[in-house]
Amino acid sequence: MTDDVKPTLTPIEDLIDVLTLEELGTAKISVTGIEGQDAASSIGATEARVFEGRSQRMPHNRVFGGQVLAQCVMAAGLTLRAVEEREGPRPIHSLHGYFMRPGDDTLPIRFAVEEMRDGRSFSTRRVHAIQKGAPIMSFTASFQEQAAGLDHQLTMPDLPGPDGLRSLADLLGHIDHPAARHIATQRPIEQRPIEEATFLTPAPDSPAEQQVWMRAVDSLPADPLIHAAVLAYASDYSLLDPVLRRHGLTWADPRLRVASLDHSMWFHRPVSGDDWFLYTQESPSASSGRGLGIGQMFQGGQLVATVAQEGMVRVKE
């Protein structure tokens, strides 16, 4: 499996390629990694199915967190295929992950999946994303067969639609900088912010909130697991922006040090990753060098997902 972006692929083809994992077999895993893969110890080792996926190259030379989230969704979901053949579809309904170490974007990632439980309605999986023999993400996910029950939701905000809004590619494409060029030409997710983007211009005295329209830049395969993975991928974009807005900061500020710490997501209803969805975001708190972002995703008037992420947000003096 190649480690570099394939230059002949479009951004969406590249994303699908990244989400197409190769199954390597089974292995014993421990708290330190995969036994036999430079693991320091096999204490508490358990059996896992192991997959591998390549990394997307990034301007900052670290793996994009949304990529690892999406690949973990795929790895976990692939271990449910036999269950779904017997019992019917079990779409993902929640995920929780901790970013433990920065990933190297020149190397592939291995995903060791523990099949924790398959009950009558729910399936639980734990995934260890591993590079260089050490975990870079610890991830758990739960899947549930579709069922009837109580139903209510938040009302979708009455906001301008995506038509007529400028995309980040349009706003930043003229800037001669690696990060701006990447956003303009290589991102597989289109973003159309309703408020002014925080990449270059501060937003002084702004509330800690923002709204962004998103969708994949091209059509996706019909597999619901891929659409859920793409939504997880997109959920890592811009969720900490409200923290910066509240404090009049921009992503271009050289003093800024930001890194995702953990990420949770709840999938409420079916979603199409290649149709427009509204991502409303707010930050209820920032303290001790950390900022919290909360988001809701709406599509077709329905609340399809809720997201929470805490990140390290430091301003170097």
Rank of each mutant, 00 (worst) to 15 (best):
A169F: 04
I12H: 14
Q309T: 01
F267E: 02
I183D: 08
Y233R: 09
Q191A: 10
A197P: 01
W251V: 09
I189M: 11
D176A: 08
D241E: 03
D275Y: 09
Q37A: 08
L24C: 01
A208E: 08
A148H: 11
P11E: 13
M214P: 05
M297A: 14
A308G: 07
D223F: 00
G119L: 04
E47S: 15
S42W: 03
P162T: 06
Q296T: 08
G295P: 03
S42K: 09
G289F: 00
T2R: 15
T250W: 10
A179Q: 12
S167H: 08
W266H: 13
G77Q: 04
P284E: 04
D104N: 13
H60T: 02
K28N: 06
R57G: 07
P270H: 14
R57P: 03
R62K: 13
M214E: 03
W251T: 08
E52A: 12
V83E: 15
I16Q: 05
S142D: 05
D17P: 01
A234W: 14
P204N: 05
S285V: 02
M265S: 09
M100L: 15
I16G: 05
A112R: 07
M265K: 10
Q146M: 10
L278I: 00
M1G: 14
S283C: 03
L21C: 08
P202Q: 01
Q131P: 07
S238T: 15
S121V: 12
E84D: 11
R49V: 15
R120P: 01
G301W: 06
T198P: 04
R57K: 15
A70E: 12
D275H: 14
D105I: 14
E87A: 10
R101T: 00
Q296C: 02
S30H: 04
D3N: 13
Y98F: 13
K6L: 14
N61F: 10
H93I: 12
W251R: 05
R54A: 06
D253T: 05
M74H: 07
T201H: 04
T201R: 12
E114S: 13
G77Y: 01
Q153Y: 09
D158V: 15
T185I: 03
G161A: 11
A45G: 03
P135F: 00
D158G: 10
F199L: 13
S285Y: 01
Q299A: 08
Q211S: 14
H96T: 01
S123T: 14
H93Q: 10
R117I: 06
